[in-house]
Computed example of a mutant assay.
Amino acid sequence: MTLYDVPAPAKINLFLHVVGRRDDGYHLLQTAFRFIDLCDTLHFDRRSDGRIVCEGSQPGLAHEDDLVVRAARALQSATGTSFGAQIRYQKIIPSGGGLGGGSSDAASTLLALNRLWQTGLDRRALMALALPLGADVPVFIYGQPAFAQGVGEQLSPLSLPQRFYVVIQPSEPVPTAGIFSAPELTRNTPSIIMSVFVDWQRVHAQGIGVLAGGTNSGSSSGTSSSPYFGRNDLEPVVCSRFARVRETALWLKRQGIHARMTGSGGCFFIECATLEQARLCQQEIIVKMPGSENGQTAMVENTWACPGLLDHPLRHWIRS
């Protein structure tokens, strides 16, 4: 049995507030997750010998450290299945970009192998397996846009308007662990209740519109200079420590384009009302963005224009 062309979509954090820190060192967050149509692709063949064989891991990443392998092993251990899997995947989502690529790959592995092995776990059981793999993994099993609290595991469904995004990848990956351990990280942002974000979304639903010329008709929570709710508390830390990320942020600001960093960085996103606007904005960035000069590395590695997803493409593969 096989499952080919299984998607693993990226996520963006529409805002990300660090509201505290537990005694065990884990940070308490509030964030809004949205999936976007920028996907890795995985292929699975069922094996009868119980072995997990994975092709396509990141260079320098040990087989047993790959989240895809760890997810497969976790499902094997939890269910006692005698099956194994031959897994291949192609990476599109950049590592160290704050887009949740590794977490999404792990979640799609759990969803696909639960079906391929006919292990029959429901959503709650798979989310419990997902959390030890990483704080972002459960939301991909949850399968819909979500308001997240705790370490990211307390999820409530969000209804979000259709939006389109330009994603910008600076030519510098950002390791998550170093950002959360930074002494200068803000860890006391006041908590909000979900309805505050929901009400803000409703009020601003008609106002968003990033244009190719860099203007924006949206307004932010408490300021007219940004079309986004709240902020990403990790962005100042990342920009202070990673030159290419900082240069990208400053260049976008100089163009009058409102962008926000997602997750722990270093990718930025720009929210648009239509796919045409997103593509025009992407083209403007490609044309104007400084390239490599005098042997220097280019500031930006890649850009994409893609829709936001209303649901995870595999949401209905499991029972709720």
Results as ranks from 00 to 15, higher is better:
residue 126 L to C: 06
residue 283 Q to H: 07
residue 7 P to I: 05
residue 218 G to P: 00
residue 34 R to V: 12
residue 266 G to E: 02
residue 119 T to L: 02
residue 232 N to R: 07
residue 152 G to R: 08
residue 190 P to E: 00
residue 180 F to R: 05
residue 289 M to R: 01
residue 40 D to Y: 06
residue 90 Q to I: 09
residue 169 Q to L: 02
residue 41 T to V: 15
residue 175 P to R: 12
residue 46 R to K: 15
residue 250 L to H: 06
residue 65 D to H: 14
residue 136 D to M: 09
residue 165 Y to T: 04
residue 301 E to V: 02
residue 295 G to F: 08
residue 260 R to Q: 15
residue 129 L to C: 06
residue 111 L to E: 11
residue 320 S to N: 13
residue 137 V to E: 03
residue 76 Q to Y: 10
residue 94 P to F: 02
residue 222 G to D: 13
residue 272 C to M: 04
residue 311 D to A: 13
residue 82 S to A: 14
residue 34 R to N: 12
residue 209 G to R: 07
residue 298 A to K: 04
residue 204 H to C: 04
residue 84 G to Q: 10
residue 73 R to T: 02
residue 205 A to L: 06
residue 14 L to N: 04
residue 129 L to N: 09
residue 150 G to R: 08
residue 281 C to A: 14
residue 123 R to F: 03
residue 220 S to C: 07
residue 185 L to N: 05
residue 100 G to F: 10
residue 153 E to I: 12
residue 3 L to R: 15
residue 295 G to I: 05
residue 97 G to I: 01
residue 256 G to I: 03
residue 257 I to C: 03
residue 236 P to L: 11
residue 101 G to W: 07
residue 236 P to N: 03
residue 72 A to M: 11
residue 273 A to H: 06
residue 157 P to L: 01
residue 177 A to H: 11
residue 129 L to R: 05
residue 267 C to I: 05
residue 278 A to Q: 03
residue 142 Y to W: 15
residue 215 T to Q: 14
residue 155 L to G: 10
residue 120 G to T: 03
residue 62 A to T: 05
residue 16 L to C: 08
residue 132 P to T: 10
residue 286 I to W: 03
residue 45 D to Y: 11
residue 71 A to K: 08
residue 283 Q to Y: 00
residue 40 D to R: 04
